[in-house]
Design a protein around this nucleic acid. Structure first.
Length: 766
DNA sequence: GAACCCATCATTTTT
DNA sequence: TGATGGGTTC
């Protein structure tokens, strides 16, 4: 039996053992929050005799969920695998896969990610004939997502925006967007939450099922919950009120994606009988670091009163350096990393934190120069890679025939002669007849809309049907191999024989490995569960580099929840951090959120914290001359020393392991940078000619130059009546001979005057 | 239909 | 600076 009281401090123990009613644990940075949650779960099971089955623990990230689960399994002797430890989103998927049909949905829905969302939004805007410059996909998705977070339907939204022209238009886009998702049998991330809420509201028996089951509910990072999540938790906990939320209002840094700090600040209003326990002892940082953090965050108003303390020694002072330029800052960081590692620190003990991803480049360059291995967190992830999205598109389309979006993505990839205009026509037909795109594709002969491509479309339909049969058999890896083979996707890349293509092939093989792995780990793996894993557990860093001991580079946001003995916070400049956007915002909380972010950054450091700025920085291609961040001024002078900025000229590099530190040749996050440096160090060109590799471009057309028709004969002349495949009838106004072609001007009866090339326009004399 | 050129525009991000 | 998208050119 665990000796709980011995393993926890008095406050932690109190938080662990209070189970009478709603409980708010205000857990400061480094105060042993996860320890409390896991022990609480153990306490419920081992001491209170609660069935693991009756416990639910909700986190935000899969990483947190996995870690929690592992720790609970270690702690509890038996039955811990029956505890539901899950992210909000996977929990909702699990519920919806079972009951979505109760509110009129299909349980095999597809999950749309940000890119799918943008594509749908774009179509919606286009369909409504709105100005695409003014109503950008990104903006539309943001507005829709915001609406959904507040549980507003398109109608609600319209009602709210009545009289506001732009708002009304967005409401129309939202409505159109919803229509499309529904037609495609797809849910976006917000829907996962909202539809679950809807299900609970409309089907009391389903709600009751889960309410009865989950006697004890724990929510981690409660300050990050949005309104939908708040409602969801409220519904779930309404019966037993065994709700325990853990969070830190000072670490709320996700307002921009809907987090409502009010949820934690007003917890006691929502649950008047709630017990509040503060965890203020910090086990992570030195006294100086902690005091600096406390001093900075004290400048925020409207926070829960708390103050972290530690019984650790004061430690080294914080070090602030103002470098002359961003390059020097990067060089200075590299130099200090080297000094630290000479002093015995592991690279993996160190992290460089910055406000924006764009700042990583300069740091990366100097680390490469010095041969310091690093790990870049964030940026473009594995599942964002084009080839991976394509192949996942196949899988999605196979799993959900109604998913027009995925089908449209892959129908001509690799190129198989089903061009845009054919797809366009088929989609129009589908829309008009209430069919899915695949319905049209599969019945192309009857529909007769594909013209000369009909054969190609038919072959494609047969191939897809074959994949579905293969999918039925249940072996996912075989299915994947089958797709690669029948589509020729992998081979076409290999034939291309470029470094970039080889990187893509590696990624494709990596996805194959992941699928095989997934099958081994999950006995009852299905195509749907695989896709769910891919959508919800898209791990952005799969670093399989041989070098384990690497410095971590990431944004302040992604650093939340982590700790490092040595931390560098770079770019401590007003306008950058706090960001220009925040400073110019009319929302008074914007600057406070930046300050919280600063607090998060400072509290990542265990022993040593370096802060720095550059007096000259290239931002968006322009030179700027920043001032020191106001946050620096908020750190008491006695805790921080300002150090000189002198650095060696940075080029005393050891070239030896440069290659290793940039994850060789593999196309990854910032993929082509690898090549750039390769060449630099290889002594040839500094920057390779850009391989813009648009798909249809050099990627699939492997080195076979297109044959130009040199002796092109026109069977019409100026004044003739001709017919065009798209524009219909028209009169030829002029013919200008070009190198290997003719530019023909035609006035069409309906479409007006057009210029086109004879070789492509395929005009027929009438 | 696809390569290429030019204008534009830039936080933070998980699910 | 760089990525991206639209328009132009063959």
């Amino acid at each position: 039996m665990i000796d709980f009281e011995k393993k926890l401090n008095p406050r932690q123990w109190e938080a662990c053992s209070y189970i009478e009613g709603p409980l708010l644990i205000l857990a400061g940075a480094g105060s042993g929050k996860t320890r409390v949650i896991t022990h609480r779960i153990a306490y419920l099971i081992e001491v209170m005799g609660v069935k693991p089955y009756n416990i639910l623990a909700i986190t935000f990230t899969n990483k947190a969920a996995t870690e929690m689960k592992t720790r609970v399994l270690k702690l509890v002797e038996e039955g811990a695998e029956d505890v539901w430890v899950s992210t909000f989103h996977s929990m909702c998927v699990r519920i919806l896969r079972r009951f979505y049909n109760k509110i009129g949905g299909q349980n095999n829905f597809t999950i749309y990610d940000a890119d799918d969302q943008k594509a749908v939004a774009k179509e919606a805007v286009r369909d409504l004939k709105l100005d695409e410059k003014q109503y950008t996909p990104k903006g539309m998705v943001a507005a829709i997502s915001k609406a959904k977070e507040d549980l507003l339907s398109p109608e609600d939204y319209m009602a709210r925006e009545l009289g506001n022209f732009r708002g009304e238009q967005i409401a129309r886009v939202y409505k159109e967007y919803e229509k499309r998702l529904e037609k495609n049998n797809a849910l976006d991330f917000d829907d996962l939450l909202n539809k679950t809420v809807q299900l609970f509201m409309e089907c009391p028996e389903v709600l009751d099922l889960y309410q009865t089951r989950f006697r004890y509910i724990m929510v981690d990072e409660y300050q990050d919950t949005n309104n939908a999540q708040f409602v969801l938790v409220k519904l779930l906990a309404a019966k037993h009120r065994g709700l325990c939320v853990v969070g830190d209002d000072d670490q709320s840094i996700y307002k921009f994606r809907g987090a409502n700090i009010g949820n934690i600040l007003n917890f006691e209003d929502e649950y008047p009988d709630a017990e509040v326990i503060k965890l203020e002892q910090n086990y992570r940082s030195t006294g100086n670091i902690l005091n600096a953090a406390n001093a900075v965050i004290a400048n925020n108003v409207g926070r829960k009163d708390k103050s972290l303390w530690t019984d650790r020694e004061a430690g080294e002072k914080l070090k602030f350096t103002a470098y002359e330029s961003d390059r020097e800052e990067a060089a200075g960081v590299a130099k200090r990393i080297i000094l630290q590692s000479k002093a015995g620190r592991q690279n993996s003990d160190m992290a460089v934190l910055y406000r924006t991803n764009a700042q990583s480049r300069a740091i990366e360059e100097s680390l490469v120069r010095e041969g310091i291995p690093y790990r870049l967190v964030g940026g473009t992830g594995f599942y964002d890679r084009r080839e991976i999205r394509d192949l996942v598109g196949y899988l999605k389309s196979i799993a959900n025939p109604a998913d027009d979006q995925s089908l449209a993505r892959i129908i001509n990839v690799p190129r198989r002669g089903i061009g845009d205009s054919t797809v366009q026509k088929m989609r129009e037909y589908a829309d008009q007849h209430g069919m899915s795109l695949f319905d049209v594709v599969a019945n192309i002969q009857n529909v007769g809309v594909a013209g000369r491509s009909a054969g190609k479309v038919e072959a494609f339909a047969d191939m897809m049907k074959g994949f579905r049969e293969e999918a039925e058999k249940g072996n996912l890896h075989l299915l994947y191999m089958d797709i690669l083979e029948k589509t020729d996707y992998r081979n076409l890349l290999l034939e291309e024989n470029t470094e970039e293509a080889r990187g893509r092939v590696e990624n494709i093989d990596e996805l194959g490995n992941k699928i095989a792995e997934f099958e081994m780990e999950n006995e009852d793996a299905t195509l749907l569960s695989l896709l769910e894993e891919i959508s919800l557990v898209a791990d952005t860093n799969d670093d399989d580099g041989n070098e384990k001991d690497r410095v971590t580079l990431m944004t302040l946001h992604s650093a939340k929840g982590l700790e490092f003995p040595v931390v560098f916070m770079v770019g401590m400049e007003d306008q950058l951090f706090p960001s220009k956007m925040a400073l110019e915002s009319d929302d008074p909380d914007a600057e406070e959120e930046e300050r919280r972010l600063c607090y998060v950054g400072i509290t990542r450091a265990m022993d040593i914290l370096y802060l720095s700025m550059a007096k000259q920085r290239i931002l968006n291609g322009v030179f700027t001359y920043p001032k020191k961040s106001r946050f620096i001024d908020e750190i008491p002078k006695n805790l921080m020393e300002t150090t000189g900025a002198k650095v060696d000229d940075g080029f005393a590099a050891s070239v030896s392991n440069v290659a290793d530190s940039i994850s060789r040749g593999k196309t990854k996050a910032r993929g082509d940078q690898g090549d750039k440096y390769y060449d630099e160090w290889g002594g040839s060109t500094f920057q390779k000619k850009k391989e813009k590799g648009s798909y249809a471009g050099d990627m699939y057309v492997s080195g076979k130059p297109k044959e130009k028709k040199t002796d092109f004969v026109l069977n019409y002349k100026v004044g003739d009546q001709v017919r065009h495949i798209k524009y219909g009838r028209g009169t030829v106004l002029g013919i200008i001979p070009e190198k290997e072609d003719y530019e023909v001007t035609v006035r069409f009866d309906s479409a007006g005057e057009k210029k086109m090339f004879a070789s492509l326009a395929k005009l027929r004399k009438v």
